[in-house]
Nucleic acid binder design. Structure first.
Lengths: 180, 180
DNA sequence: GGACTAAGTTATTGACCAATCACTCACTGG
DNA sequence: CCAGTGAGTGATTGGTCAATAACTTAGTCC
């Protein structure tokens, strides 16, 4: 297997492991084991642990953006909101995606706090791309964009807390966790 | 100093340290140093590291609830929204509060994933209390409640990412990071 | 002044982890 | 057949960390 293919496998494995353990709580050994490769070999493919996390973060953001873009492609603003909401619900039904996203925000804060500004900078760029896409597809309406993104973040919190289906918070949203 | 007073000091120190390092990334030694006490003594005051984090999490949630309650006390729904928004902005201007909150969501996910359901259960209860308070003060209007809480979560993300003041996301919210 | 209690410490242990180094193995071109 | 290259491993190292155990004060009550 070529180094490039291995790197791809590492990014997928890292997403899964970091989602379940966070940045510090995940060992490079665990990632290597999931890839099926020795731990030191990771450091031939990436300079260090941080780079692996960053690659996974980029992947996570890009998946979100791509899904929202696909779901709303060519739709008028009125229909785009529902379509993107549905797409986002499907995406976050994958707990791996959801938990990694939460870890990303937390890790960004830690990184900023410890002087690593490049980390959050990468996330800010990705966030901007998602924001702009949503804004465009919702007819460049600030209110709608804030509402959509806010509800997305709210759902993230519900899912992270494992709020049971039928909880008053879910009902107020007119939504429920997506079972599949 | 009595054990109870020490425990209080530990909770405050833990909030500060966990905010900057996350659950796994913060050593009990760092907390002890901030309290001005030996590391092993923490384990006389709390059964383990997890219990310290849980106590800090309870404190964090209670501070949010209390601030929102104070700010909106006796106000009609129309004014309560603005008042609570202002209060929340002030609270999260304290980066310690904000970052700890993000760590809390991330840690809840990790805990659930690893079979520790009590952790998230405590947070769900606290979340429910905050939700009910906001719902009540906003005139029991689901739409408003979702809007308010969603915008709160959105602002959390902005702050965690250190989105610069004046960023289009901040402008769309009609808000800006609270400097003091 | 001695027995008791509660606050606090030093020393230690057993485990884990990121990263480095030196090495093996399989393949390919000349 | 051999020199070179790229994939991959085993062993190690220096460091950190949660938790335990055993010890030391300092006060208080009788």
């Amino acid at each position: 297997m070529s180094a490039e293919e291995r790197r791809e496998a590492v990014v997928r494995a890292a997403l899964a492991e970091f989602a379940r353990g966070g940045y510090v709580g995940t060992s490079t050994g665990a990632i290597a084991r999931r890839v099926g490769v020795s731990q030191p070999y990771l450091f031939r493919l990436f300079p260090d642990k941080r780079a692996i996390f960053l690659a996974a973060a980029a992947r996570c953001c890009e998946q979100i953006r791509a899904r929202l873009a696909d779901a709303s492609d060519g739709l008028p603003p009125d229909e785009a909101a529902g379509a993107m909401g549905e797409a986002y619900a499907q995406l976050t039904a994958d707990r791996e995606q959801l938990l990694f996203q939460m870890q990303m925000y937390a890790a960004a804060g830690v990184a900023e706090e410890s002087g690593d500004h490049d980390f959050a900078e990468q996330l800010r760029r990705s966030w901007g791309e998602i924001w702009d896409l949503v804004h465009l597809r919702l007819g460049a309406d600030d209110g709608r964009t804030v509402g959509f993104m806010g509800q997305g973040m709210l759902i993230n919190a519900f899912l992270a807390l494992n709020l049971p289906p039928g909880h008053r918070s879910w009902q107020a949203c007119g939504a429920a966790p997506d079972g599949g």
